[in-house]
Simulated scan of single mutants.
Amino acid sequence: MLVIKVIWSSCLLVIFLIWSGEAFAGELSERLANFPQWEKLTSVQPASGDLIYPEWMAGSWQVTSTLVDLAAPLAPDIVTPGFEGNRRQLNQPVSFVVRFVKAQPHISSLKIFPQIDYKFQSLVADRAFNSLNLARAYLGDEAVLSVKVDPDSPNRQITFLRSSRQLVSIVTARATETVSDSKFITTEVFQQLFKGGSRPYLNSVESTTAYHKLLTTNPAIEADQVTAVYLSPQDPDYFKAGSRPAALYRYRLEFVPVQMPNIQKE
């Protein structure tokens, strides 16, 4: 059950706004509206560099995530492990703290481009902090030891679990759709590899999220998020599934600002 929960909860580890890879107009909006009738996206672009957020997401936030719907489009022929068990999570809110900070230029960048004015830094997620808090919110403090982000690539991270288990997540593609100054939609596609069990478990996950800045402070931001789980080529049912997801999870996210010390991302 621990394996299933890790694989499922890690789908939420990427709640990001993408600065490049613009989707076709309205495609992501239409995608959310058509839930659960989904196919794999073809308009995403290869992931490169860090993910940039709008300035109104700066600071620290108490996030409440609630699973409000789920679907198994290929059932009863194909049902992912733990899908039925995840029904117990319906309408059960889970809270955790995340933060978004100003990115600091890498030392190598300062050496190569010393003439650049780095005053106007991009806003990025504190990936290790956010992922650790999220994983512990779902799995418990003792189950999750740490989260490490690859210093050479913000798109690769490892979650270290008890008993020498690891969850490796690699963002491979992304897209975004700007709706207005206060609303945007983003998609990330990533590969998940769970190591340390009886055999490695690999799958592909897409997380599509529509964020909306509100005029209130409680919450200040709300989001509609759908996580789609696709079978990996190693799965015996891979060709039977085709381009359709084997599981879909829909969440409601609420962001409330919290006061924490200012952090600069190094």
Rank of each mutant, 00 (worst) to 15 (best):
Val256Tyr: 08
Asp141Lys: 03
Thr64Trp: 10
Lys240Phe: 07
Ile107Arg: 15
Asn86Gln: 14
Gln157Glu: 12
Asp69Arg: 00
Ser48Met: 05
Gln234Gly: 11
Glu266Gly: 15
Asn262Ser: 13
Ser109Gly: 00
Ile112Glu: 10
Ala137Asp: 07
Phe239His: 09
Ala210Gln: 14
Ser131Gly: 01
Ser10Lys: 01
Ala72Val: 00
Ala246Asp: 01
Ser198Ile: 08
Leu248Lys: 04
Ser43Ala: 07
Ser29Cys: 10
Gln192Cys: 05
Ser122Gly: 13
Glu142Gly: 01
Phe239Asn: 09
Lys195Glu: 08
Lys102Trp: 10
Thr209Ser: 09
Pro219His: 02
Asp152Cys: 11
Arg244Tyr: 05
Glu254Gln: 15
Ala23Leu: 07
Arg127Lys: 14
Ala58Cys: 12
Ile18Arg: 15
Arg99Lys: 11
Val63Glu: 03
Ala137Cys: 03
Gln92Tyr: 02
Glu254Ala: 15
Gln157Leu: 12
Lys183Thr: 11
Pro154Met: 05
Asn262Lys: 15
Glu142Cys: 07
Val229Lys: 08
Thr42Arg: 13
Ala125Glu: 10
Gly197Glu: 01
Val149Ile: 08
Gln104Met: 11
Ser207Leu: 04
Val171Ala: 09
Ile7Pro: 03
Asn34Cys: 08
Tyr201Lys: 00
Ile4Leu: 12
Asn91Met: 08
Ala143Val: 01
Pro245Ser: 01
Asp152His: 14
Val98Lys: 07
Leu231His: 12
Thr66Ser: 15
Thr216Met: 04
Leu51Thr: 12
Asp235Ala: 07
Phe160Leu: 14
Asp224Gly: 00
Pro114Glu: 03
Gln121Trp: 05
Tyr211Asp: 01
Tyr230Asn: 02
Ile107Gln: 14
Leu231Ser: 09
Ser131His: 01
Gly85His: 04
Arg87Ala: 08
Ala223Pro: 09
Glu266Thr: 14
Leu51Ser: 13
Arg165Cys: 10
Leu145Trp: 00
Arg99Cys: 05
Val147Pro: 05
Asp152Arg: 10
Val44Cys: 13
Val44Pro: 06
Ile4Ser: 15
Thr42Val: 09
Arg88Gln: 15
Arg244Asn: 00
Ser95Ile: 04
Val189Glu: 15
Tyr118Glu: 06
Glu177Gly: 03
Tyr138Met: 04
Phe96Cys: 03
Ala175Pro: 14
Val168Cys: 08
Arg244Ala: 09
Pro245Tyr: 03
Leu70Cys: 07
Phe96Ile: 06
Leu28Asn: 03
Thr64Gly: 09
Ala246Phe: 06
Val6Asp: 06
Val3Asn: 12
Phe113Lys: 07
Glu55His: 11
Pro219Ile: 01
Thr159Trp: 13
Ser198Tyr: 11
Ile15Gln: 14
Leu202Trp: 00
Glu222Ser: 11
Phe160Ile: 13
Met260Tyr: 07
Glu22His: 11
Glu39Asp: 15
Pro76Asp: 07
Tyr138Ala: 10
Arg165Ala: 11
Ala246Gln: 04
Val256Met: 09
Trp61Val: 00
Thr66Ala: 10
Ser20Pro: 00
Gln191Trp: 08
Ala228His: 02
Ser232Ile: 10
Ile78Gly: 08
Asn91Cys: 08
Ser169Ala: 08
Phe35Thr: 10
Ser198Gln: 09
Leu32Ile: 09
Ala23Asp: 11
Trp8Gly: 09
Leu123Phe: 05
Asp126Glu: 14
Asn218Tyr: 05
Leu17Arg: 15
Val258Trp: 09
Asn203Phe: 11
Tyr230Ile: 04
Phe16Glu: 13
Leu248Glu: 02
Val144Thr: 05
Tyr138Asn: 08
Leu193Trp: 02
Phe35Ser: 12
Phe255Arg: 00
Thr216Trp: 04
